[in-house]
Design a protein around this nucleic acid. Structure first.
Lengths: 101, 101
DNA sequence: CACGAACGTAAGCTACGACTTACGGCTGCT
DNA sequence: AGCAGCCGTAAGTCGTAGCTTACGTTCGTG
């Protein structure tokens, strides 16, 4: 149960998510397309799995990973909240910014 | 402008964004509520500004920061794309090697 | 005009995370 | 049964992000 945002913070993990968005892939497939080794991909997938962003499935001797809709929706909703709150205080440029008296 | 996701990857920066979602704040205000020093907050705000997630406004001797709707919308849209693509390959659990049973 | 408040930047240190190599565990062929 | 392909984990190295202290700058106020 990691924060979730830290999972996407790393460029390699973001690259993995982008590849998995196209289609589910095995660990070796991802390692071939990325400039990092296969163990590195495994470690990243462990983080992504801990964050609930991906799910894995044993398929023969391979392990196929794909994106988890629920995990992605959680982040999207939180980001959507930020976006809405940003629109609220958008027009009142200068208003109340004092506290102590 | 640069990473975008790396900006939100840091816990301190995420905390800043959450505070700015409530209302615009000055640098000193944020530093008082966070367990880090004021220069640290400035450095984080510089990253967030570079990512287009916040905008600043000089107000007297203080600098008021608030969230940028456009920057947040960009990340949200990309995350929303991931979410939709995740739903596509959700029901076809086994894609390959499902010919023979 | 001088002082203080608020902020950004420079310099430096420390800790953590990302990566590699090496190893062991499964699974599925022949 | 034995071998080969895939994968996760351990151990260790190294770069860098994040933090602090110190300093310079700007703006407002007496």
């Amino acid at each position: 149960m990691h924060p979730g945002w830290e999972a996407l913070g790393d460029p390699s993990r973001l690259a993995i998510v982008q590849r998995l968005a196209e289609r589910p892939r095995a660990v070796g497939e991802l390692a071939d397309e990325l400039p990092i080794s296969r163990p590195a991909v495994s470690q990243h997938l462990k983080v992504l799995k801990g964050a609930g962003l991906v799910v894995d499935q044993a398929l023969g001797t391979r392990r196929v990973y794909r994106l988890s809709p629920v995990g992605l929706a959680a982040l999207r909703d939180q980001l959507d909240t930020f976006w809405r709150r940003a629109l609220d205080g958008y027009q009142d440029v200068v208003e109340e910014t004092e506290e102590s008296s």
